[in-house]
Amino acid sequence: MRRVVITGMGVIASTGKDVESFFSALLSGRSGIARISQFDPSALTVQIAAEIPAYTPTDYFPAKRLEMLDRFSQFALIAAREAMQSSGLEVREEERTHFGVVVGSGMGGAQTLDQGYLNLYAKQATRLHPFTIPKVMHNAGASQICMEYSAQGPSLATSTACSSAGHAIGQAFHLIKFGMADMMLAGGADAPITYGMLRSWESVRVLATGNGDPRRACRPFSADREGMVMGEGSAILLLEELEHARRRGATIYAEVSGYGLTADASHITQPSVDGPVRAIRMALNEGGVNPEEVDYINAHGT
């Protein structure tokens, strides 16, 4: 059976624009949450988010290319570039059809859509920019990465709310394991800090207001927890078939050995116990891992 390992990592987030700074912020417990800067949030109940600070798109992309990239695709590309660079992978011409991309996104090109609708409904424009659809679609991030690296293997976008990136990694793992690809860039990207998005989330009444100290707004599992905080960014991993990675002497960070996914099929926002239990058992079973061997469980803390 083919085995799958992680040989590259990339990230851009509120706490760091690369893996090194991101990880050091995690270790030092530094929060990236602050008052929203992308638009004036004064009218909102929730005025905080985890935005990428001091982000200048032209530092990463030429102006013409940017016209085709929603903010979420920009982040996906930036994280993918770091993952590729850290992996040292150079894809040979004949390998391109075995190199693929899965990028999960909950909201896709939310900013482009928000701006487009503002122009359409409020400013009474009669048409939108011809790049609107290619920018807004959820698979824009994956497609843009494919084009940047001439990756001609499987290309997918998963969109399963907060599980989008996790499912992307799982799908990429299976695509390699079952022989449809040897190398996969996989992860997630979102940039949902828009007025329309924040208003929508506000109505769900699950967001922390962070009144007083935004940095302490997100405290899952705390007795005095307030709710979740919207954020933006991307994290992309390079998954690689083990022998492929060994042949090129790649640094192996971890192995993905099992994956499970289920649906509760009950309430749209309230999880049941049965669904996650079955998903975890499915993953343990595939990986041949006993529950007592598990060191760390990454819980979804909202």
């Binding site: 359409l120 409904y121 009474q124 009669t126 048409r127 939108l128 011809p130």
Partner: peptide, 13 residues
């Protein structure tokens, strides 16, 4: 390429 707005929006192009 030229979008037509639904009449009920009351927005005349």
């Amino acid at each position: 390429r030229v979008a037509t707005l639904p009449g009920h929006l009351g927005v005349s192009a």
